[in-house]
Amino acid sequence: TFTSIVTTNPDFGGFEFYVEAGQQFDDSAYEEAYGVSVPSAVVEEMNAKAAQLKDGEWLNVSHE
């Protein structure tokens, strides 16, 4: 299960995956970082959410 939350205070020191406002979700980078295949429906969902981000916001993507 993939989830996401919007934050204005990303923790770059941890093992977190963020999408910056104005960027798209990079499923290849996510797969490389976590060894998890990302279904195309999830990629579309995360890109739709990322498109709604305002300046200074980040989308924190995770999975269980």
Rank of each mutant, 00 (worst) to 15 (best):
T1M: 13
T1N: 09
T1Q: 12
T1E: 09
T1I: 14
T1K: 14
F2G: 00
F2D: 00
F2E: 01
F2N: 04
F2A: 00
T3R: 07
T3Q: 10
T3D: 05
T3I: 12
T3M: 11
T3Y: 14
S4G: 12
S4F: 10
S4C: 13
S4K: 01
I5Q: 11
I5Y: 15
I5G: 07
I5H: 14
V6G: 03
V6C: 08
T7W: 02
T7V: 13
T7I: 09
T8A: 08
T8S: 10
T8W: 07
T8Y: 08
N9C: 14
N9S: 12
N9K: 12
N9F: 09
N9V: 09
P10V: 04
P10M: 03
P10N: 02
P10T: 02
P10D: 02
D11L: 11
D11G: 06
D11Q: 12
D11K: 11
D11M: 10
F12E: 04
F12Q: 06
F12Y: 07
F12N: 05
G13C: 15
G13L: 09
G13V: 07
G13R: 10
G13S: 15
G13A: 11
G14Y: 06
G14R: 09
G14P: 08
G14E: 08
G14N: 09
F15G: 15
F15T: 15
F15K: 14
F15L: 12
F15A: 13
E16C: 15
E16K: 15
E16R: 14
E16I: 09
E16Q: 13
E16Y: 15
E16S: 14
F17A: 02
F17P: 01
F17I: 03
F17M: 02
F17L: 01
Y18P: 02
Y18N: 03
Y18S: 03
Y18W: 07
Y18C: 05
V19Y: 01
V19C: 05
V19D: 03
V19A: 00
V19Q: 00
V19F: 02
V19R: 00
E20S: 13
E20I: 06
E20K: 14
E20Y: 10
E20R: 10
A21R: 07
A21E: 04
A21V: 07
A21H: 10
G22P: 01
G22F: 06
G22R: 02
G22T: 04
G22Q: 05
Q23S: 13
Q23K: 13
Q23I: 04
Q23C: 12
Q24A: 12
Q24S: 10
Q24G: 09
Q24K: 13
Q24E: 10
Q24D: 08
F25C: 04
F25R: 00
F25G: 02
F25D: 01
D26T: 04
D26C: 07
D26V: 05
D26P: 04
D26N: 14
D26W: 06
D27C: 15
D27G: 15
D27E: 15
S28E: 12
S28M: 13
S28W: 11
S28V: 15
S28D: 09
A29H: 06
A29M: 09
A29I: 08
A29P: 00
Y30A: 00
Y30Q: 01
Y30R: 00
Y30D: 01
Y30V: 01
Y30M: 03
Y30K: 01
E31R: 12
E31T: 14
E31S: 12
E32K: 15
A33W: 13
A33V: 10
A33F: 13
A33Y: 12
Y34S: 05
Y34L: 06
Y34C: 08
Y34K: 08
Y34E: 00
Y34T: 09
Y34Q: 04
G35R: 06
G35D: 05
G35N: 08
G35C: 10
G35F: 05
G35W: 04
G35Q: 07
G35T: 03
G35M: 06
V36S: 04
V36T: 06
V36I: 13
S37H: 14
S37I: 12
S37L: 10
S37P: 11
V38H: 00
V38R: 00
V38Q: 00
V38C: 05
V38L: 06
P39K: 00
P39M: 01
P39G: 05
S40G: 10
S40W: 14
S40P: 14
S40R: 12
S40N: 10
S40L: 13
A41E: 13
A41L: 10
A41I: 10
A41S: 13
A41M: 10
V42H: 00
V42R: 00
V42L: 05
V42T: 08
V42E: 04
E44G: 07
E44N: 08
E45P: 00
E45I: 09
E45W: 11
E45L: 10
E45S: 08
E45N: 06
E45G: 03
M46T: 04
M46D: 05
M46Y: 05
M46A: 05
N47H: 03
N47R: 07
N47I: 05
N47F: 03
N47M: 06
A48C: 12
A48P: 00
A48G: 09
A48Y: 12
A48R: 13
A48S: 10
A48H: 11
K49E: 09
K49V: 11
K49I: 15
K49F: 12
A50C: 09
A50N: 02
A50W: 02
A50P: 08
A50H: 02
A51T: 07
A51C: 08
A51R: 06
A51K: 08
A51Q: 11
A51H: 07
A51N: 09
A51W: 05
Q52W: 06
Q52F: 08
Q52D: 11
Q52T: 10
Q52E: 12
L53G: 02
L53F: 00
L53R: 00
L53W: 03
L53S: 01
K54W: 04
K54H: 09
K54G: 07
K54F: 05
D55T: 14
D55L: 13
D55F: 12
D55H: 13
D55Y: 12
G56D: 05
G56A: 04
G56W: 02
G56R: 04
G56C: 05
E57R: 00
E57Q: 10
E57W: 05
E57K: 01
W58N: 01
W58Y: 10
W58I: 02
L59S: 00
L59H: 02
L59F: 00
L59I: 04
L59C: 01
L59E: 01
N60Y: 14
N60E: 09
V61L: 04
V61Y: 00
V61P: 01
V61H: 02
V61F: 02
V61G: 00
S62D: 05
S62E: 02
S62K: 15
S62L: 10
S62A: 09
S62T: 12
H63L: 06
H63S: 05
H63Y: 13
H63N: 05
E64A: 13
E64I: 14
E64N: 14
E64V: 15
E64H: 14
E64W: 11
